[in-house]
Simulated assay, not measured.
Amino acid sequence: MTTHENVVEVRELRKIYGHFAAVDGIDFDIHRGETFALLGPNGAGKSTTIEILEGYRDRTSGDARVLGVDPGRGGLDWKARLGIVLQSSGESGNVTVIEQLRHFAALYPNPRDVDEVIAAVGLQEKAGTLIRKLSGGQRRRVDVAVGIVGRPELLFLDEPTTGFDPEARRSFWDLIRTLQSEGTTILLTTHYLDEAAQLGDRAGVIAGGRMVDLAPIGELGGADARTPLVRWREAGEQREQRTDAPGALVAALIDRLGPEPDALEVIRPSLEDVYLDLIGRETSTSDDAEPTTTETEVAR
């Protein structure tokens, strides 16, 4: 695996706990400068995959390269090239925002200017405020500031806007777009499909430890999954038809059934519809045994 354009390269990655495969032979690349969304339900293997790529968890088998390095062997120089924003932070609430950022900046060989980072995350007016006095959205911005102060080439964002209100989420998206415009490569996990659609260039969908689809955001699920669905009631029966020309079909129905066909609706599948269909198909075809409680706890 020597492709210079790829920041992350994964081949046949597996993590096995006893008889349970938390990650079961997945493959994907992340290109330099793109935002890659890793999607899947709880227990699908997303967090396990990310922790392997961050160097926090050993893999059972397969190959992985992050910034050209095996993450299981990455040293301090390699770790300094990463930015990591976990689902929950362990920051001290008894220091101020600027104290927190100065502390972490001192750990990196070529950090960003602390004042510039605070401005980038929109916390200039809170720089001297104790972190415990910030709102949840503001504390999350501190997490991101800590993640980017070291000037990372690759930024891991694990469920970054969980618990945000809609306004805070939109503001956070603007911040991520700024990082994208600067060329930062981002690996994003999120349960918010609109967030993946807004920020992601490509996405991989994991279910049961397997990669069930991998494509640009607008192409997930294939063309058929995104074909509009026209649904109506005729002769007492519910009918439906997928078509690339829903307007023409509706016009034909009006000609045949009159100006107001019964229960007529045109459904254009959203990313959420496509995602749920992918997960549903995987669930219905999987013949894996149910994991034990212990296995479920480790297969995040």
Results as ranks from 00 to 15, higher is better:
residue 145 A to S: 03
residue 92 S to G: 10
residue 181 S to I: 01
residue 120 A to C: 02
residue 278 L to N: 07
residue 17 Y to W: 13
residue 75 G to E: 08
residue 31 H to V: 15
residue 295 E to I: 10
residue 55 G to I: 01
residue 209 G to W: 09
residue 267 I to H: 14
residue 134 L to I: 01
residue 148 I to Y: 03
residue 115 D to M: 10
residue 41 P to M: 10
residue 21 A to E: 11
residue 112 R to M: 06
residue 155 L to S: 00
residue 57 R to N: 02
residue 155 L to M: 02
residue 259 P to E: 03
residue 290 E to L: 14
residue 87 Q to D: 09
residue 58 D to A: 15
residue 155 L to D: 00
residue 252 A to W: 04
residue 90 G to W: 06
residue 109 P to I: 09
residue 272 E to L: 04
residue 179 L to H: 08
residue 110 N to D: 14
residue 165 D to K: 13
residue 276 L to Q: 13
residue 143 D to T: 06
residue 209 G to H: 09
residue 250 V to Q: 04
residue 260 E to D: 12
residue 14 R to C: 12
residue 241 Q to R: 15
residue 287 D to W: 11
residue 53 L to S: 06
residue 224 D to Q: 11
residue 170 R to H: 13
residue 52 I to V: 12
residue 149 V to Y: 02
residue 17 Y to G: 08
residue 113 D to C: 12
residue 196 A to R: 03
residue 238 Q to I: 13
residue 50 I to V: 15
residue 210 R to F: 03
residue 59 R to H: 05
residue 81 R to D: 06
residue 148 I to E: 03
residue 203 A to V: 11
residue 73 R to T: 12
residue 69 V to T: 14
residue 193 L to H: 10
residue 51 E to I: 00
residue 184 T to R: 09
residue 104 F to S: 03
residue 246 P to C: 06
residue 13 L to E: 10
residue 198 Q to L: 09
residue 168 A to S: 15
residue 138 Q to C: 06
residue 60 T to I: 04
residue 223 A to E: 12
residue 242 R to K: 10
residue 92 S to W: 13
residue 57 R to Y: 03
residue 55 G to M: 01
residue 18 G to R: 08
residue 75 G to T: 12
residue 252 A to Y: 02
residue 298 V to T: 12
residue 49 T to R: 05
residue 215 A to Y: 00
residue 53 L to V: 01
residue 27 D to T: 11
residue 292 T to A: 00
residue 62 G to Y: 07
residue 266 V to E: 00
residue 133 K to Y: 03
residue 158 D to H: 08
residue 281 R to K: 15
residue 185 T to W: 02
residue 103 H to P: 00
residue 25 G to P: 00
residue 229 L to F: 11
residue 242 R to W: 05
residue 300 R to A: 12
residue 203 A to N: 00
residue 131 I to Q: 00
residue 203 A to Y: 01
residue 244 D to V: 13
residue 139 R to N: 06
residue 52 I to E: 07
residue 119 A to M: 05
residue 55 G to N: 01
residue 232 W to Y: 05
residue 100 Q to T: 14
residue 295 E to T: 05
residue 262 D to H: 13
residue 30 I to F: 06
residue 265 E to P: 00
residue 196 A to C: 02
residue 181 S to G: 04
residue 7 V to W: 01
residue 256 R to N: 02
residue 225 A to M: 11
residue 82 L to V: 05
residue 34 E to M: 08
residue 246 P to L: 04
residue 54 E to Q: 08
residue 33 G to M: 05
residue 180 Q to L: 01
residue 151 R to H: 14
residue 245 A to V: 07
residue 251 A to W: 04
residue 174 D to Q: 15
residue 238 Q to A: 14
residue 56 Y to H: 07
residue 202 R to N: 08
residue 274 V to L: 10
residue 47 S to V: 01
residue 260 E to S: 10
residue 274 V to R: 07
residue 286 S to I: 05
residue 34 E to L: 09
residue 2 T to W: 01
residue 136 G to R: 11
residue 163 G to Q: 07
residue 155 L to R: 04
residue 176 I to Y: 04
residue 236 G to E: 06
residue 258 G to W: 11
residue 189 T to C: 11
residue 128 G to E: 10
residue 152 P to T: 09
residue 126 K to F: 07
residue 53 L to D: 09
residue 174 D to R: 15
residue 167 E to D: 12
residue 229 L to K: 13
residue 124 Q to V: 14
residue 9 E to K: 03
